[in-house]
């Protein structure tokens, strides 16, 4: 499905990031998560994991799903983190600030493994080093 991606802080994301715990399971569990409403979750077939894919389909990230009443249909939320930023649009409309709020993305069910923050850097950004 197509969706607008919103990213932002959550209290535990903040707690773990500020506490230097980005390479812990807790951090992955808190941040490698795609929030959505029940309606969208159902229409995707109630998947345990989804791939969120950038508009140009160049980048994709696997996340666990979380169903919440905080979201409306057509909107997904990922806590501010390296996972979210994989699919945030890099163009800034000449402002310097990428589209952390409202990047258009695709969301699809997936069986891909969820990477830790460290694996994501080494595999996706550093060419598998």
């Amino acid at each position: 499905m197509e969706a607008l991606l919103n990213t932002g802080s959550t209290i535990d994301e903040g707690r773990l990031a500020k506490g230097g715990s980005k390479y812990t399971d807790d951090y992955t569990k808190e941040c490698a998560v795609c929030w959505m409403c029940a309606e969208d979750f159902t229409s995707l077939g109630c998947p345990e994991k989804v791939a969120v894919i950038s508009r140009d389909r160049k980048y994709s990230v696997a996340l666990t799903t979380k169903v919440t009443e905080a979201m409306r249909s057509g909107q997904v939320f990922i806590p501010r983190s390296i996972w979210a930023n994989v699919v945030v649009e890099p163009d800034t409309f000449s402002t310097g600030s990428p589209r952390y709020k409202g990047s258009p993305v695709f969301v699809e069910p997936t069986d891909d493994e969820i990477l830790s923050a460290e694996e994501l850097v080494t595999k996706m950004y550093m060419g598998g080093e």
């Binding site: 990031a17 980005k22 950038s54 160049k58 980048y59 501010r80 983190s81 390296i82 930023n85 994989v86 699919v87 945030v88 649009e89 890099p90 990428p98 923050a117 850097v121 996706m124 950004y125």
Partner: peptide, 11 residues
């Protein structure tokens, strides 16, 4: 942690 905060192409 800049690497964490920027979109994939830039990172």
């Amino acid at each position: 942690d800049l690497m964490d905060h920027i979109p994939a192409e830039s990172a």
